[in-house]
Nucleic acid binder design. Structure first.
Length: 428
RNA sequence: GUGCCUGUAGCUCAACGGCAGAGCGCCACACUGUGGAUGUGGAUGUUGUGGGUUCGAAACCCAUCAGGCACCCCA
C-alpha cells in the first residue's frame, strides 16, 4: 500500500458497508422528518465566508472553515453548517413561501478540525427546521421529531436522552445575580465547560472570569436546580406539549445545557447517549429569533436542530443497534457451468430481471465450487445453475443456499421458486 | 493551534539490541455438477521514510511523514 496516494486528512471513504450505514441513516432521518410533514431541501455546498461571519461564532468562521480562493479571485467556503444558508434562502422568498415552513436536509459539511473519535473534517448532517411560528409547542414538535428518530433506530429513553433548557430563563436568572451583559458570553461558556472540569477547578475558573463569590454561589445553585423550569412559562408549556406528543420520557430539563452557537435565543436542547463512552452530543438545536434579520430578511422566528452522522453511527454500533446490511443487492447468483452454456446463464438472468429479481451472473466459466463459494461470501441466498442436464430439459437447478436444498425447476416456474425461498428467510 | 501515544504480511498483533513470526484472511489440494465445516500444503515484508549509534537495529537516538487519542471547539 506504500504507493497509494493517501486520502485528504479527515475525509470519509464510504466502502459499500459504510455506504449502507449512511443510506440507513438517511432512510431513518427521512422517515422521521416526513412523519411530521417536513419537506426535503438543500443549499449550496459552497458559500461565501461572509454568510457565516454574522452569527456562526468566531471559532467556526476563522479557524474551522475550509476557505479557498477560486479562479476568479473570490473567497469561497465549504459550508461548515446549514442554518445560515437556510436563513438566506427563506429571506430571499419570504414574500412567497407558505408559512410555517417545515424543511429538512441531509448532506455533507466540512470543518477544518483535528480528527478524533466522533469527529472528522467531512461529515453528513441532518438539519431540520420550522420557521414562521414562535411557540413552545413548535419547539416541542422539533424535539418530538428528534425523539421519533432516536426511537426508530432503537435508542430507547434508557439509552438516549434529550436535555432541554431555555436561554430566556437563564437570562432572567443572570439578571437576578446582577451579571453584567458583557459578562454573559463568558458565563455561558463557563456553564458549557462545567461537566468537563472537576468542581474545584471550575470554581477557580469561574472567579477568574470575573464572577464574585456571591455570583458564583448563586450560579451553582441555579445549575443544580432541576425544578427551575417551573419558573418558565415557555418550558411549562413545552413539557405539556411533549407529553401530548408522546415523547416525554425522552426529555429532561437541565440548566447546564447552553450550546455554543450565538444565534439561539429561547429553547435549546441536546441529545446524549447514556452509555457515556462518547461525551459528544448526538444532536443539538434550539430556537433562533433573529437569524433572518441578520441576513437581511424581515424578522422571523425559527426552531431546528442538527445531527451529525459520525457520532450517531458510533453510538448505534456500540449499542449493537446496527442492522446487518446485505453485501450485495443481488438476490440470486446465476452460475456459469461452462463456456458452451455461458450465454444461457445470461439469458436466464435477463428473464429474472424482467420479473423484478436482482440477478448477478458469475462473470466467467470457472469451477463451480469457486462460484458457490463466491455466492456464499456475498451472502446470496439463491444460486441457479444450468448444466447440460437442465439445458436439455429446459430446466434450471435452483439451490437454496441457506439450507442447501436444490430442486430442478422448469424455466417458466423459476421466479416463483425464487420468491418462495426469499420469503422463507424473512420469516426466520 | 497545544499535548500524549502508535507506525512490522491484506487485517489484528508478537518478536530481551542477535535467523522477522502467529492468528485470521487469501490461494491450492482432499472434493474435475455445487458453498459453509474439517484437514494438508502454499504465497505474501524496503519492519512508514531518511539519517545516526552499534560487530549487529523492527527495537536505541535524531529528523520527517502518516495515523490515533485528548484539549480547544463542536454534529
Amino acid at each position: 500500500m506504500k504507493n497509494v496516494i493517501p486520502s485528504v486528512k479527515g475525509t470519509r471513504e464510504f466502502y459499500p458497508e459504510e455506504m449502507a450505514l449512511r443510506n440507513y441513516l438517511y432512510e431513518k432521518v427521512r422517515a422521521a422528518s416526513q412523519a411530521f410533514g417536513y419537506q426535503e431541501w438543500d443549499g449550496p455546498f459552497l458559500e461565501t465566508i461572509d454568510l457565516y461571519a454574522a452569527k456562526s461564532g468566531e471559532e467556526l468562521v476563522k479557524k474551522q472553515s475550509f476557505v479557498f480562493q477560486d479562479r476568479g479571485g473570490d473567497q469561497v467556503t465549504l459550508r461548515p453548517e446549514l442554518t445560515p444558508s437556510l436563513a438566506r434562502m427563506i429571506a430571499a422568498r419570504q414574500g412567497e413561501l407558505t408559512f410555517p415552513v417545515r424543511w429538512w436536509s441531509f448532506g455533507p459539511f466540512w470543518r477544518y478540525e483535528q480528527p478524533q473519535k466522533g469527529r472528522t473534517r467531512e461529515f453528513f448532517q441532518w438539519n431540520i427546521d420550522m420557521l414562521g411560528v414562535n411557540s413552545p409547542e413548535a419547539d416541542a414538535e422539533l424535539i418530538a421529531v428528534a425523539a421519533t428518530f432516536l426511537r426508530s433506530v432503537g435508542l430507547d429513553p434508557q439509552k438516549a436522552t434529550i436535555y432541554v433548557n431555555n436561554r430566556r430563563l437563564m437570562e432572567s436568572q443572570f439578571d437576578g445575580l446582577d451579571i453584567a451583559a458583557e459578562q454573559r458570553m463568558d458565563v455561558s461558556n463557563l456553564i458549557d465547560r462545567r461537566s468537563k472540569m472537576d468542581a474545584a477547578k471550575w470554581d477557580a475558573y469561574a472567579l477568574e472570569t470575573g464572577l464574585t463569590q456571591k455570583q458564583l454561589d448563586g450560579l451553582k445553585k441555579i445549575l443544580e436546580d432541576f425544578e427551575l423550569w417551573k419558573k418558565s412559562d415557555e418550558l411549562v408549556r413545552l413539557f405539556a406539549a411533549l407529553e401530548a406528543l408522546g415523547v416525554k420520557e425522552y426529555v429532561k430539563f437541565d440548566p447546564n445545557i447552553m450550546r455554543g452557537l450565538l444565534y439561539y435565543t429561547g429553547t435549546v436542547f441536546e441529545a446524549f447517549d447514556q452509555s457515556g463512552s462518547l461525551k459528544r452530543a448526538i444532536l443539538g438545536g434550539g430556537r433562533y429569533d433573529n437569524l433572518l434579520v441578520d441576513v437581511g430578511g424581515q424578522p422571523l422566528s425559527g426552531v431546528g436542530f442538527a445531527m451529525g452522522d459520525v457520532v450517531i453511527g458510533i453510538i448505534l454500533q456500540e449499542n449493537g443497534l446496527l442492522p446487518e446490511f446485505d453485501p450485495t443487492p443481488a438476490s440470486v447468483l446465476v452460475t456459469v457451468f461452462d463456456e458452451s452454456l455461458w450465454l444461457q446463464s445470461y439469458a436466464l438472468a435477463a428473464d429474472l430481471r424482467k420479473a423484478g429479481i436482482n440477478a448477478m451472473v458469475y462473470p466467467e466459466p470457472t469451477k463451480l465450487p469457486k462460484q458457490f463459494k463466491f455466492a456464499d461470501k456475498m451472502k446470496i441466498r439463491v444460486a441457479l445453475t444450468i448444466g447440460p442436464d437442465e439445458a436439455a430439459q429446459n430446466k434450471v437447478a435452483v439451490k437454496n443456499l441457506l439450507n442447501g436444498e436444490q430442486t430442478i425447476v422448469a424455466r417458466d416456474m423459476i421466479a416463483e421458486a425464487i420468491h418462495k425461498i426469499l420469503a422463507q428467510r424473512v420469516s426466520e
